[in-house]
C-alpha cells in the first residue's frame, strides 16, 4: 500500500507539472496546445544532450531545457499563434495550427535527435528502503519528485505574488477588463506561453533521468495532459494540480490492483472519466460554461 501511494505521489507530481503548463496556456489564450507532449520530449532530449553527451552537471541540463523551451514557446506564440488568433473567426483554426506545430516539432525531433530511445546515467545511486521493503523507492525518483513539487510551489508563488503572475491571472479571468486596466495582452500572452512551454521542458528534463526519452512519447503525453485538465477543469491552476495528482494516483493504484486483468488501467480511468464528466462536465474546479 505504501508503495502504491508513493508511486502515485511521484507520478502525480510529474503529471501536475505537465498539466500546469497546458492549463496556463489554455487559460491565457484559449488555445489547446497539442504540441505540449512534443515540447516535453524536446526538454528531455536537451537535458540528455547537455548532461549525457557533453558531460555537464545535471542542473545545467535542466536549466538548458527550461531556457530552450521558453524561447521556443515565445517564438511559437509571437510568430504563429498571435497572427492566427487575430485573423481567425473560429477556434478550430488555432487547434489545427497547434496540430500542425505538433507534427512540425515531431519532424524536428526526428531530424535533430533521431528516433532511438535515449537514457542518461543515474543522477544518484541507491534505493530508499522504508520499513523493511514494504516501500522501495530509488533515490533518483525521490529527488525528481521533490524537484517537481518544488517547481510547482515556485510556480504558484510566482503566479500569486509577482506582478507578471498577477497580470496573467487577470488576463485569464477577463481579457477585455485586464486590457482596460492597462495589462499588455500581447506581452503577457507571450510570457505565459513561454512559461507553459518551459514547464513542459522542465518535466522532460526531470523524467529523462528515470524513464529516458524517445520520439514517440510526445503524443501520449499530450493525451495524458488533456485527461488531467479535463479532470481538474480547464484553465484553472488548482484544477491542473488536482488533476495531475488524481491521474497519478489512479494510474499507480490501477497498475497494482488491475494488473491481474491485463493492462486495462487506462480503459478503467477513461470509463470513470466519462461517468465523472456526465455528472460534472466542467471538471472538479472548472468554471461552468454555456
Amino acid at each position: 500500500m505504501e508503495q502504491v501511494l508513493a508511486n502515485g505521489a511521484y507520478l502525480g507530481a510529474q503529471y501536475a507539472l505537465i498539466a500546469l503548463g497546458l492549463t496556463l496556456i489554455f487559460a491565457l489564450m484559449n488555445v489547446l496546445n497539442f504540441a505540449h507532449g512534443q515540447m516535453y520530449v524536446i526538454g528531455g532530449f536537451v537535458t540528455y544532450t547537455v548532461y549525457a553527451q557533453l558531460g555537464l552537471p545535471f542542473v545545467v541540463g535542466l536549466a538548458a531545457s527550461a531556457v530552450t523551451l521558453a524561447i521556443v514557446g515565445a517564438l511559437i506564440e509571437k510568430f504563429l499563434f498571435r497572427p492566427v488568433i487575430k485573423k481567425s473567426v473560429r477556434e478550430e483554426s488555432t487547434m489545427l495550427l497547434a496540430a500542425g506545430i505538433a507534427f512540425f516539432l515531431d519532424a524536428i525531433i526526428l531530424l535533430v535527435f533521431g528516433e532511438k530511445q535515449r537514457g542518461v546515467p543515474k543522477i544518484i545511486n541507491g534505493i530508499f528502503n522504508y520499513n523493511d521493503y514494504t516501500m522501495v523507492m530509488p533515490y533518483d525518483k525521490i529527488l525528481v519528485g521533490f524537484l517537481a513539487i518544488a517547481s510547482i510551489v515556485i510556480f504558484i508563488l510566482y503566479m500569486q505574488y509577482s506582478k507578471t503572475g498577477r497580470a496573467m491571472r487577470a488576463l485569464a479571468q477577463d481579457k477585455v477588463a485586464a486590457q482596460l486596466m492597462g495589462v499588455d495582452v500581447d506581452k503577457y500572452s507571450m510570457i505565459g506561453f513561454a512559461l507553459g512551454a518551459m514547464l513542459a521542458g522542465v518535466v522532460g528534463g526531470l523524467l529523462v533521468t528515470v524513464t529516458g526519452i524517445n520520439l514517440g512519447m510526445g503524443g501520449p503525453t499530450s493525451i495524458k495532459a488533456f485527461m488531467m485538465v479535463m479532470i481538474g477543469g480547464a484553465g484553472v491552476i488548482s484544477g491542473a494540480i488536482a488533476g495531475g495528482f488524481i491521474l497519478g494516483m489512479m494510474e499507480a493504484v490501477g497498475l497494482s490492483v488491475l494488473a491481474a486483468y491485463g493492462d486495462i488501467t487506462y480503459l478503467a480511468i477513461f470509463v470513470s472519466l466519462m461517468v465523472f464528466l456526465a455528472i460534472r462536465p466542467q471538471g472538479l474546479m472548472g468554471k461552468p460554461w454555456g
Binding site: 504563429l80 497572427p83 483554426s93 500542425g100 506545430i101 507534427f103
Partner: peptide
C-alpha cells in the same frame, strides 16, 4: 507540417 502551418498562417479560416 510546414505547409500546414503556413496554410493556417495565411488562410486561418
Amino acid at each position: 507540417s510546414s505547409v500546414l502551418i503556413l496554410l493556417m498562417l495565411f488562410l486561418p479560416n
